[in-house]
Design a protein around this nucleic acid. Structure first.
Length: 187
DNA sequence: CTTTCGATGATCT
DNA sequence: GATCATCGAAAGG
């Protein structure tokens, strides 16, 4: 009887991205089950950490198990969970969550959208969970964050990442098999 | 169903 | 000036 995978922030971002599927993430009591992630590793030209530390990505080179928050297209806040990979900054983008906690607050933040779209996409996750620059660099094991690994083993599916122009072919997008809360179907 | 495009600001060349 | 780990609305098949 295998135990659910523990979350290892010292290992590779690909392993962490896979292990995070099914984990429960809350921010100030709002959130749910992670159903979609993408890995961004040290050697990855699509990763913000690829060119080394700078003011924006500093959190990716800080302690593992902390948050890296960045502004996307000038509009959205996107949340990454930082890990360390061969001493280099790496992280996992949280792309979609199945809402289980604080749905009223999510709806208030997201406006009049279908419940299936509350957290279906990295920008939507950021908005629904109230993520801002203030969360950048905060530890994930203390308030306002709460993170616990998947309570039971889950079936994970894999596909190419979304919305990038470099290393498009890398199969580093992970999803919960059969979930209708993912941002897009898997091939 | 698909593709296109504007919003909006930090970062890169 | 161009690009970008996006979203939502609009237009086209």
């Amino acid at each position: 009887m295998p135990a659910a995978a523990a979350l290892d922030f010292q290992g590779s971002s690909v392993d962490l991205a896979r292990a995070l599927i099914g984990a429960v993430l809350l921010v100030d009591g709002v959130g749910g089950r992670i159903v979609e992630t993408e890995a961004y590793d040290a050697e990855d030209p699509a990763s913000h950490s690829h060119r080394g530390p700078d003011p924006r990505n500093a959190s990716m080179f800080g302690p593992p198990g902390h948050a890296y928050v960045y502004r996307s297209y000038g509009i959205h806040w996107c949340l990454n969970l930082v890990c360390r990979e061969a001493g280099h900054g790496a992280g996992v983008l949280v792309r979609a969550i199945e809402p289980t906690h604080g749905q009223e607050r999510m709806r208030a933040r997201r406006g009049p959208v279908a419940d299936l779209l509350l957290c279906a996409g990295p920008g939507r996750v950021g908005q629904a969970l109230g993520i801002t620059r203030a969360h950048d660099g905060l530890p994930l094991d203390r308030a306002p964050f709460a993170l616990r690994s998947a309570p039971q083993p889950v079936e994970v599916i894999v596909g190419p990442r979304i919305g990038i122009s470099k290393a498009q072919e890398m199969p580093w997008r992970f999803g919960l098999q059969g979930s209708c809360f993912v941002s897009r179907r898997f091939p």
